[in-house]
Design a protein around this nucleic acid. Structure first.
Lengths: 218, 218
DNA sequence: GCCACGATCAACCTTTCGGTTGACCCTCCG
DNA sequence: CGGAGGGTCAACCGAAAGGTTGATCGTGGC
């Protein structure tokens, strides 16, 4: 049986070397290419596709320095920009905030692992992704489960998106412009957010959201 | 001539594997031990010291999940807790905020590299550290120079105190009550804080202060 | 088909915040 | 001694944010 062909996407040479060494030690896995950001990843995928050497799994970081970020890249891969059929994308990143996880899942990622995971867990996730299954880190899975049957009110994806802009210090007008909606809508969302988080102003909302890891920590 | 003996300290197995593979490819370097956090690093150093196999360079991450962070560990190593003479500590991390760099330098680090650096640069830095020299990533060096030329305005203790209450989501009235001062005074302080941080509202102030680690992160 | 719900927008009003000016007191330091 | 700088307070004004009501639209479930 042929090896599972993996593309590594991470802006840190150190991490790429680590994954190469780590995955190379396993039977049945081969790292066929690497990319330092989302744009390079798309190019690599296209190149390999036209060569008739398709990739079985993309292992992708989310934060990528200056280049195209992982969520954007995942969305474009899934849109078929680098050839059909689009390979499964397994996210491998450092953070596990609700915002990151939701964005990745919505972009079409088929798994979400954390970099502090033991090697064997990462290998299992790659195998699962190659088999068309979904693989979530235990911490991530727990977080998603908690979202489903939690007594606490659940924030919608849009509300979380707003919350993140809020945390950068933008005013309502600026947030409205960023999201291409009216200021009135921003205010409506904020009222909902305040209600769900049990606060009554934007700074308190940021504080609570950061503490509950609804948004990425500063 | 004997190899330079390196201790790796990083909470991510992936990163440790990468550094091990990367440094192992170079002549004159040997990774003799690894640790997943500051506490384990101190233990490893002590153990190797009593075995008569001292470490020449410690390669240390700053953010270390749950365990002891890199700055604290560096300080304690330099205090001689893991045996004298204390080996040089080279910081290898993802972030290059002023607060991180300054804290590391003050703790006694003899270098500060970023994880997105090319392998050769990291090798050079390890060699420099082993030789008792200082090695800074270009981006880090530039940042330090910039600080000297135009030193950032310094927040007073009272202003930082205010900033911390601000970050909990309190309004001006509540902050005033908490500090036993009038609301007018709170507003005066806020205007000063905004000026020093280069922002024009309280949420942006929190964002900037958290990023520069003027206040503790959420 | 209808209902629930999220997302969108508008109008209105109250409260808070941001920004300014000017003032007083204290301590540290040259 | 006298200035510099931090901390305190007041009054004022315009801008922004908070809060309410009500409405439309689309999607997904029953």
């Amino acid at each position: 049986m042929n090896d599972i062909r993996v593309l590594l996407v991470d802006d840190h040479p150190v991490v790429r070397a680590g994954l190469r060494a780590m995955l190379g030690d396993f039977e049945g896995l081969t790292v066929v290419a690497e990319a330092a950001d989302g744009g390079a990843a798309l190019a690599e995928l296209s190149r390999l596709h036209t060569l008739g050497e398709p990739v079985d799994v993309v292992l992708m970081d989310l934060q990528m320095g200056a280049g195209m970020d992982g969520v954007t890249a995942t969305g474009r891969i899934k849109a078929g920009e680098a050839g059909q059929p689009a390979p499964p994308v397994l996210i491998l990143t450092t953070y596990d905030s609700d915002a990151d996880i939701l964005a990745a899942v919505e972009a079409g990622a088929s798994g979400y692992m954390l970099k502090d995971a033991p090697p064997e867990q990462i290998r299992q996730a790659v195998l699962a992704a190659a088999a068309g299954q979904t693989a979530l880190a235990p911490a991530v899975a727990a977080r998603l489960m908690g979202r489903i049957r939690s007594p606490e009110p659940v924030l919608s994806a849009r509300e979380i998106q707003l919350l993140e802009l809020l945390a950068t210090g933008l005013g309502n007008r600026a947030i409205a412009k960023q999201l291409f909606i009216s200021e009135a809508t921003v205010k409506t969302h904020l009222v909902h957010i305040y209600g769900k988080l049990g606060v009554d102003n934007r700074t308190a909302a940021i504080s609570v959201a950061a503490q509950r890891r609804i948004i990425r920590r500063f």
